[in-house]
Amino acid sequence: MLTFTLRRLLLAIPTLLLISLVIFFLVDLAPGSPASEIPLTVPAEVRMKILEAMGVNEPVYVRYGLWLKQFFYVEPLTGIDAIFGSNYAEGMQRIISYQTRSPVFDIIVQRLPQTLIVIGTAYLVGILIAVPIGIYSAYRQYSIFDQLGTLLAMIGFSVPTFFSGTLLIILFAVGLGWFPTKYDTTLTVTDWDTFWQQVRQMTLPVMTLGLANAASISRYMRSSMLENMGQDYVRTARAKGMSERTVVLKHVLRNSMIPVVTVIALGIPSIFGGAIITENMFGVSGIGSALIGAIHANDLPMVQTLAFIFAILIVLFNLIADVLYGLLDPRIRYD
């Protein structure tokens, strides 16, 4: 397993380089230009000058080369400087966002906490709700609980977050006045009061996203459990006189985890990616809203950098999922 992991990690490097190339050129090829942010009142000559100063007009391979150097050399050095107080990266050009004219990584660092806290909590809540529901629904298939769970799950993922979010706002913020609708990113938790405030402002976005996540994970959990419930080994275990609890939670659950692990592993990079619609709606200025803002403004360096960071996370977590498969089912071997 160790050699497998190492080999995969090594292989990931050329893969990621290729992905970075594809992302870079795709984003570059997309129609649209940062000029869409400039009001129409600005004359064409000034417009051209602004774009030129941004570096938009450089040929794409020059920009790609520069970006590679900045991403893999300048930015890590800057990170080292920030941690150790050294000054290796002094005077080097960092990746600069077109939109804000500031380093892309500064923005990411500023926004990551909100995304991790809010979206991460929502994901955790989703998993914590979904797994038990999935297990119990499968165990008592076609019971009232299962039927109700199915109904809710179906509604959960057939209504998009733009709808459920607005509904929650109208119910809980406008109607009942319990929660704020806009997330205050400047709030720092120092005492119980601010902690409570933080919990309150997180509630609506976490609910919106948690429900959507729970809906799909619970379905995979249930179906996979069902698949395994009928297997011979379950009958054998029961025949041996094992308690239902051991049979279901140890034998069936472990064997049913493969699709669920896949789905969860696919979902974790999206935590870092944020949830575009939800973040935007509730003003949780995280990575997701940065990405959509950058896409709308055609802020190419920002889009390319964020997309590439997601690529790294996706490759990494799919690798972790592969390793987990081996642990869950020792018969799976890669070598």
């Binding site: 090829l29 129609p31 869409s36 896409i295 055609n298």
Partner: peptide, 16 residues
């Protein structure tokens, strides 16, 4: 057309 394309003025796009 998406506003960022429509108002983007990208000479390569047919939709500005």
């Amino acid at each position: 057309i998406d506003a960022s394309v429509f108002f983007g003025g990208d000479a390569g796009s047919p939709d500005t």
